[in-house]
Structure formats: C-alpha cells, structure tokens
C-alpha cells in the first residue's frame, strides 16, 4: 500500500480527532481531578470540598485537588464549571448560594443544568439575639418588633446571601419591620452581635455554637424544619412562631459540568458515597456543625431544582431586589 501525503494528513487528522473526544469512561481517570470551589479557602464551601478530596482520591486512584476560583459571590466559579470540558476532570462544589443567585442577579449559568453527583453536607442557621435584648422566645421577639416597628435591627452575612433571605422571609411571614444591616461574612456579624450593636441575626450553627453555649448570645430558633443535634432544646422557627414552610439553610454538594458522560458521573458518585460514609468524614462534618448529606443522582438534581424555585418564590414574596 502506498501512502500518499493526503492519506497521511487524513490519518493524523483522524487520530487527533479521536484524541479530542471526551475521555472514555473505561480509562477514566488518568489525570488529576480538579474540584472548583467558588469561595476562598477556609470557608464552609472549601472545608466541605477539602474534607472529601482525600477519600475521593483514594477511591478513584488519582489525585483530587481543590481549586479556589473566587469571585463575584461564587459566580465566577459557577460560570467556569458550566463551561468546563465535560470530561470528568473538572467537578464543581455547588451550594445553596448558587441556587439562590439566579433570583437576585443576572447569572450566566443555570444551576439546574449541572450533572448532580451528591449532596455533601447541609446546615441550618440559628436565629440569634444579643444577650441583653430581653426576648426569650420568638413570640416575644415578634411582639417586640411589632411594638416599635423599625427599631430592631438584624445582621446578615451579605446582601443576597442565605441569612439575608432568611431574615426577609422571617419579616414577611411575621409581618414585622426589622432594619437590615449587611456585613461581609459571618465573623463581623458575630462581632457586632457580641458587642450588642445589632439586635439579632441568622448565623450558621458552627461559628455561633460556642457563644450560645457560653450564654453570650441567645439562640431563639433554628431556621430548618428539624431541630439540630447540637441544640436539641432550641425549637424550629416553624414551631416557635407557628409559621408554615419556614425551611432555610445552606448546603454544599458535588456536581459535574453539563454533559459529563453518565458512567463517569456514576464512578464519582460511588466514590463520593463511600467517602461520605467514613467515620472520619462524618465526624469532621458533625464537628463543623453540618449534617452530612448523602442525597445523590436524580434525587439531588430534583432537590437543586426545587431550591431554585423556592428561593425565586421567597425573593418575589419578600420583594428583595439587587440590581
């Protein structure tokens, strides 16, 4: 057989085409896997990802690394993940913030479009008040707020963040007028609550735990629809204020870029499930004040969709607008 130059070019073309198609699941993974995290190192999102990588890398037989692609309240990473090559080498740590984002600002990606892998962990907020506010229950707090509309203030970790929406939902469900004071993250919120400059706020369980145990802050309620193990005596907002459908919290889960082959997603899911089940991961999450997740596949995908719709409903109901 005589090889013409044209044949050769064709052959090379075909070979490079073959190399260009997404990795076949059989030999996946042959490269390190990157998990995109949209927030700085040390944040909840990052900690959940970093807790999982060791086990994932053991089970998948390749190194798994976290890449903090921070920016625009997580939008930069979400965008990068949505446009990443769907070859299984880029995964994404999505969170409740991304399902909330489309309802408050223009977001270039669709949180429902990702291939769901597994819910890593979830956590609720505590409704905290400063210790000398004088309200010992949600009822008293609501009465206080109604007595003098606009006199009370609540802190949130940022405009459009989960605690802000939770606060607005609380206001609209209880019919109260409470002044919103936005901060940059949980830390300054706690500082000003401890100093008594702001009256109340919704804050994640882990960072506020010790102040509640110490009596420096008072936890009136939990924002979820179940009580938390850490504070079994603290009622849920639904119980305490007689409200229905008050279920707010944050969660973090693993997804793959849209279009990632199902067999690769399945491999990661299996590895993630086993990792999550280990004592080490379970105790790390509990120590951080989170509930270990576990929801996977279609169930997790459906959960993401309902969250997007839920937040859109709240934003509309409470009339929150950013931009």
């Amino acid at each position: 057989m005589k090889l013409t130059r044209r044949d050769l070019i064709l052959a090379i073309g075909a070979a490079s085409l073959a190399a260009g198609t997404p990795a076949v699941a059989a030999d996946w993974p042959s490269e390190p896997i990157t998990i995109l995290v949209g927030y700085p190192a040390g944040g909840a999102n990052d900690l959940v990802a970093r807790t999982l990588i060791e086990g994932l890398s053991e089970r998948l037989g390749t190194s798994v690394v976290v890449e903090n692609r921070t920016g625009a309240a997580g939008v930069v990473a979400g965008d990068a993940a949505a446009r990443a090559e769907p070859d299984g080498y880029t995964l994404y740590m999505i969170s409740s913030a991304q399902t909330l984002a489309p309802s408050i600002r223009d977001v270039s990606f669709d949180p429902k479009a990702f291939e769901p892998i597994m819910l890593g962990a979830a956590g609720n907020y505590l409704l905290l008040t400063r210790k000398d506010l004088g309200a010992s229950s949600v009822e008293e707090l609501v009465a206080m707020a109604k007595d003098d509309p606009g006199a009370l203030s609540y802190a949130s970790s940022g405009i459009g963040a989960g605690p802000h929406l939770t606060g607005e939902l609380f206001k609209s469900k209880t019919g109260t007028d409470i002044l919103h004071v936005p901060y940059r993250g949980d830390t300054p919120v706690l500082t000003d609550l401890l100093a008594g400059r702001v009256d109340m706020g919704f804050v994640a369980v882990a960072p506020s735990k010790q102040y509640v145990e110490n009596g420096d802050l008072i936890a009136l309620a939990v924002s979820g629809n179940e009580r938390v193990d850490t504070f079994p005596d603290v009622p849920t907002v639904e119980e305490a204020a007689g409200l229905d459908a008050f279920n707010m919290g944050a969660w973090w889960g693993l997804v793959a870029p849209p279009g990632t082959p199902q067999d690769i997603v399945d491999k990661v899911t299996a590895a993630a499930e086993e990792t999550l089940a280990t004592d080490k991961v379970q105790s790390t999450f509990t120590g951080l004040g989170f509930r270990p997740g576990g929801m996977k596949g279609e169930e997790f995908g459906a959960f993401i969709s309902t969250e997007v719709d839920k937040f859109a409903g709240i934003v509309e109901e409470a009339n929150i607008s950013v931009e």
Binding site: I104, P182, E323
Partner: peptide, 9 residues
C-alpha cells in the same frame, strides 16, 4: 466590585 451595603456591582 460588589458594594457590600447594596449588593450593586
């Protein structure tokens, strides 16, 4: 960047 007090870009 994002304004902390209003959330505007």
């Amino acid at each position: 960047g994002i304004d902390v007090n209003s959330g505007y870009m």
